[in-house]
Design a protein around this nucleic acid. Structure first.
Length: 200
DNA sequence: ACCGGGATGTTCT
DNA sequence: GAACATCCCGGTG
């Protein structure tokens, strides 16, 4: 629905701090695979010492400066892929890191992808499939080739959709410090669905 | 339960 | 060289 997409696009043009909680409950879809967003972190670009874009545009972070609704994928610690939803105005860096998802469909395939990546024959437990920013990309098969994909385009392999059955009204939102950073550690810019077993 | 270290490659000082 | 928006495993209480 073009109308629905326009609403989503508009919402993503806001500051990462507003977009982050807004993304909780949305679906991330890749082919038959789908999972619900339950934990995220806001990165405020050139205003944020912990952001990849703090020192301006580089080859790696170029997508962060793009249009709201793009997928920013980066390579972490020499072996992991992490995925962000780009937000804010075009030309202004901003993104929301996906930290944990609740598996919804294609669970067998996600489990197989996780097991293969660990060179193990026993897949992780359901609650661990998409727990952690690098684990969720492994489960959904997201890599460098998806950097810059438009999450709101029907033609895109990876998409962001409204959940058909949204969480019950009054579902609590929790908030705390971001994980794994060494600068701006005091900012409470991580958001998650309170009580979810799938958060990291 | 918590803690330490290794894997592995790109980016920054 | 060091740092890094991570993860997993094996040690010790």
């Amino acid at each position: 629905m073009a109308r629905r997409r326009a609403v989503l696009r508009g919402a993503l043009r806001a500051d990462p701090l507003e977009v982050a909680p807004y993304l909780l409950g949305k679906l991330l879809v890749h082919g038959r695979l789908a999972a619900r967003i339950v934990e995220v972190e806001a990165y405020r670009g050139e205003a944020d010492p912990a952001s990849h874009a703090y020192r301006g545009r580089t080859a790696r972070n170029a997508t962060m400066f793009g249009r709201a609704g793009l997928l920013y994928v980066y390579f972490s610690y020499g072996m992991h892929w992490c995925a962000n939803v780009v937000c804010g105005d075009e030309g202004v860096a901003g993104a929301v890191l996906l930290r944990a998802l609740e598996p919804v469909s294609g669970i067998e395939e996600m489990a197989a992808a996780r097991a293969a990546r660990r060179r193990s024959d026993t897949p992780p437990a359901l609650r661990d499939l998409c727990r952690g920013p690098a684990n969720l990309t492994a489960a959904l098969g997201i890599t460098r080739t998806h950097d810059g994909a438009d999450l709101l385009s029907p033609a895109s392999a990876v998409r962001l959709l409204d959940d058909a059955t949204p969480p019950p009204a009054g579902a609590a939102l929790a908030r705390g410090p971001r994980v794994g950073i060494t600068r701006a550690v005091e900012a409470d810019w991580r958001f998650w669905v309170a009580g979810s077993r799938y958060v990291s």
